[in-house]
Structures are given as C-alpha cells and as structure tokens.
C-alpha cells in the first residue's frame, strides 16, 4: 500500500473511531443488563428520593448518597478527594474499572456524579441512558440486596477544576472580560424572574431573574419521553437555536447545580463543546451582592 494510501486509511479509521469513542459515554440498559457480572464494570446508583435504591436497584449496583458522598455535607462544595477515594474504595472500584452511573429524577444526580468522576480523573465513566425511568419502562427486574464488593485502595487524580465554573468566572463572562456563553437550564418562569423557585421549594434566592446574557434551554428539552437523551443532531440544533454552537466556551447553571450537570454532560460529552458547570448556580448568583441581573418580569423581593 502506498504511503498516502496508508495515511488516508489510518485517517479514515481514526475518524470512524471518533464517533464510536464519543458514543461510549452513554451505555444502554441492554448493555448494562448484559454486563451485570462483568468484573471490570461497576454500576453505581445516585438517587435522592428516599428508599428508591433500597426498594429496587439494578442487580449489583452500589447505592451512592448524593448529599453526603458526592457533596460536602458541611461546607457548600463538591466532595473532597479523600472522601471520594473512600467511597470508591468501598465500592471496590480500581483505576481501570468502567463505572456506570444511573439514577432517579432523570439521571440529574447521576450526571452530577459523572461530573465529579471527571473532575477526579477517573478514566472510564458512563451514564446509563434513560436511568431508572427507562429500566422501569422496559420492565427489567430490580434487586433489593445491597451488594458487597471486595474493597480496593482507590487513588483520585488531582481535581481538574477546568470543568468547574466559579462566581468570578461567571462575572468575567458577564462583564465581557472573557468569551463565553451562559446556558440557564431552569424553567421559563424562573428564567423570566416570574418566580424565585418552583412552589414549595425552600432554597430561594433574594433576587429573581437570570444572569445577563444567559440563554434559556430548559433541561427537559434535551431528553425524550423515556428519559434517554435526544440524538446528537437534535441536540446540536437545539442549542444552535439560541446561539450556542461550541465556538465559545459554555457555562451551564440552574438553581442548585445538579440539573446543570445534566446539561453540562449533554454539551461537553455528547456534543464535544468546551463547557464548565457552575455548581453555585442561582442560589449563589441570585444571593450575591452587587452582581448584575436581568429580571424581565420585574418581580421584587418583598421581604415578608
């Protein structure tokens, strides 16, 4: 074979491999079902509704408590490296284990988990497309025994904080000191400032509205009825409609930071854009002193 021919051939193979590699961040329920006994795979469930995991989970899945094991329970921050290592060691995960995450509530918290795993540099992480919802729709069996795996000694990589946006980063984009596109994944009413938060929710901000320049793309537009993500083409079009096409770095936010990790996953892992998750989200921004806010509905905090 001639030299240009082999270069072309290699290029074709690489190009063919790329979408396959991009495909790999999602696994189907079918794949999980077939790999339940695969020693190189570990399934973790990240659900927040009480009792959901215990009443029935994918066989062999380890339950992860989001509030205490993926978030710092005292200080508002992501889980520390030490606690993360303890969690993974307990679950019997080693550096080359393929970790599959899924959960309730549309995989929001599983997506947060994915983001944390990426921050701490785990090599192979996947999300089970559709989460609990799809598994239930397909009437696959649930298990109620809590598995025990032989413990390992897991070492996390130093945190990759390029995946995380902090308040100064967001302000930098608002004040046009650095390029960026902000994506707000909350409901249209919250975005417009009509309400501070959905009814009955306790975590409020003192001001309503959105970060100036942010585009509204509610997370629900990125998934199908059965909980699976829409096709890459549809997602690309969805974000292109609001001017998010990957040419500028993106920052996603919501109210607390969990739903925004879901959209972070879509933009970064499925579409390959440069994205950071602003986990402080509106509960930080809307309570911060002296930051610019866009409040179309004009709702004012009446300080009752």
């Amino acid at each position: 074979m001639s030299a240009p021919g082999s270069v072309l051939g290699t290029a074709i193979l690489l190009l063919a491999a790329l979408p396959a590699a991009a495909q790999e961040v999602l696994v189907t329920t079918e794949w999980v079902s077939n790999n339940l006994n695969n020693p190189k795979v570990r399934v973790l469930e990240v659900s927040v509704d009480p009792g959901v995991y215990e009443k029935g989970h994918v066989e062999g899945a380890v339950g992860v408590k989001w509030h205490s094991e993926l978030a710092d329970p005292v200080s508002r921050d992501i889980v520390s490296a030490a606690s993360f290592e303890k969690l993974l060691s307990r679950a019997g995960i080693s550096g080359d284990t393929t970790v599959v995450l899924y959960g309730d509530n549309n995989n929001w918290f599983a997506a947060w988990g994915y983001w944390i795993f990426e921050i701490y540099g785990h090599k192979a992480v996947r999300i089970m497309d559709g989460g609990r919802k799809k598994w239930e729709i397909e009437k696959r069996p649930w298990d109620t025994t809590v598995p025990s795996h032989p413990a390992t000694t897991y070492r996390a990589a130093p945190p990759n904080l390029a995946l995380r946006a902090r308040l100064p980063d967001v302000l930098s984009v608002v004040e046009k000191r650095s390029p960026g596109a902000l994506v707000d994944v909350r409901s249209p009413d919250e975005f417009a400032g009509k309400v501070f938060a959905p009814p009955g929710i306790q975590e409020l901000a003192i001001r309503a509205g959105h970060v100036p320049g942010a585009r509204s793309v509610p997370w629900s537009k990125t998934v199908n009825e059965d909980g699976t993500f829409k096709s890459r083409e549809d997602l690309r079009k969805l974000y292109a409609e609001v001017g998010v096409d990957g040419k500028t770095p993106v920052i996603t936010y919501c109210r607390i930071g969990e739903r925004s990790s879901h959209s972070w996953f879509v933009l970064k892992e499925l579409l390959g854009y440069d994205v950071r998750n602003y986990d402080g989200s509106w509960t930080e921004y809307g309570n911060a002193v002296g930051v610019p806010i866009e409040n179309p509905a004009g709702t004012v905090w009446t300080g009752k």
Binding site: V48, D49, N105, P199, G200, Q202, E203, I256, R259, K304
Partner: peptide
C-alpha cells in the same frame, strides 16, 4: 409559613404538587 424541621431542603428534586 415555614415549619422548622419539616420543610426540608429538596434540592433540584421536584415536589409533588
């Protein structure tokens, strides 16, 4: 309006309203 200890933080999880 608020009942201490009963109205807990729900996170992003929607309440059944």
């Amino acid at each position: 309006e608020r009942l201490e200890g009963l109205d807990l933080m729900a996170g992003c999880r929607p309440l059944d309203t």
